[in-house]
Design a protein around this nucleic acid. Structure first.
Lengths: 227, 227
DNA sequence: TTGATTCTTGACCATATGGTCAGCTTTCGC
DNA sequence: GCGAAAGCTGACCATATGGTCAAGAATCAA
């Protein structure tokens, strides 16, 4: 027992770190495609180019490996989920939210699909996270949205449904990639496509919810040109 | 070899029909939860209350059973996908589309999830359908949307992204049910909730894309009150 | 009632599963 | 260069997998 066992410390020698990365990458791909049950350690090992025993040596068990991948993905989202306040410009906050959600989906499509597959299966490993951490996050955003609505900066839509709308429509391009590509006839989405989609989604959400820029901050005309 | 072997005929005695239904229902549930690979015939058999051999007797193989379920779900969507024309009222068409998509998701959540899981896995059994039948359907709608835009009945948004937006945001409530329930703290969505969501989504799409009712159909004032 | 068809199911098979372990090699601090 | 720690992996295990088959039970048309 050397050093405190804080989660998410780099921890471990260079060899360990390199091999763990290889395994995590391979595993994310396979789990995303076939789900927890549908994935075999053998297949992960082949993807990683290592013997099965080696995978187990580093990861301990299939379950631990899977949970670790889920946590890594939650972590990536947490980075995005920085705080907002009712003082911020709703147009900018919502635009930034859509954009960064979309970019994470694009950068980590496998992680996104892994998460989706976990939820599809009834979230056996994530129930706690959903009804705890994530719920709090959503509720706090909801409060801010409501205040914006009260101040006339957006229509009084239910903030939770709005968040789900943004969540689902951005997630879609990673999770349902096969469908998107099949229907559009493309074999991948370009950065341009992505930019167009972001603009489209932003436009629909902003316009559809009547989101406005806040009036320059003051009631009295004397400070009106403050900015 | 009695009778022509047309697909989707009722075909088969009462016993067969009854048992097949039992098996299909059970299988849809399990496949939806664990995906194709993650599902075992044993588990399906237990869900159905039948011995595994019996499942095989009726369904032939795991693969055939799975494909049959996918086809059944496609069928259910086809019912909804009746034709529209550029002459129709865009507001009504889009509202009806959102509503019926939502209702199918609600009536067949397992089928919806089964489909989602298939797409997540790269659509190994549905590629043909996606880039064929479904693609044609989307393209034909897209043409109509574009004409509406040309006539000033809606903003010139990319119709395909719009269809994906509707698709994803409605699908979400079935596929990500576990997340929705976890975050909202509910243990199920009521009919009222559903109605609110439908209204919200409709509102955002209609307003967000600037969709308008068509002017009463005629250029000359004499036929203006025709309807 | 009878003969054919449909239904039912336990026994069985080759293969694959997650996981353990013992014994080997490599790496690394000193 | 040495000893301990870390890394590596084939052999192995109990169990589960999709699927076959043969033989009996129930059903149905005549």
């Amino acid at each position: 027992m050397a050093k405190a066992d804080h989660t998410s410390e780099p921890e471990g020698g260079a060899i360990r770190r390199r091999n763990e990365q290889t395994i995590l990458t391979a595993a994310e791909r396979v789990f995303a495609r076939h789900g927890y049950r549908g994935t075999s350690l053998q297949e992960i090992a082949e993807q990683a180019g290592l013997p099965k025993s080696n995978v187990l040596y580093y990861m301990g068990s299939k379950r631990k490996l899977y949970v670790r991948l889920l946590e890594r993905m939650m972590e990536r989202w947490n980075v995005m989920l920085d705080d907002i306040s009712a003082e911020d410009d709703p147009v900018e906050v919502l635009s930034a939210f859509i954009r960064s959600k979309m970019q994470i989906s694009r950068r980590h499509p496998e992680g996104s699909r892994l998460f989706a597959s976990e939820i599809l299966g009834g979230a056996p490993f994530l129930q706690e996270y959903l009804s705890g951490e994530l719920r709090d996050w959503v509720q706090s955003r909801a409060t801010v949205f409501r205040e914006w609505a009260d101040r006339g900066l957006m229509d009084p839509v239910d903030p939770v449904w709005l968040i789900f709308l943004i969540w689902s429509s951005t997630q879609h391009y990673a999770d349902f990639e096969a469908q998107v590509l099949g229907i559009t006839g493309r074999d991948s989405l370009s950065d341009d496509d992505l930019e167009h989609i972001i603009e489209f989604l932003t436009r629909v959400v902003i316009k559809g919810c009547g989101v406005k820029h806040p009036a320059p901050r003051a009631k009295d005309p004397w400070t009106l040109t403050e900015r």
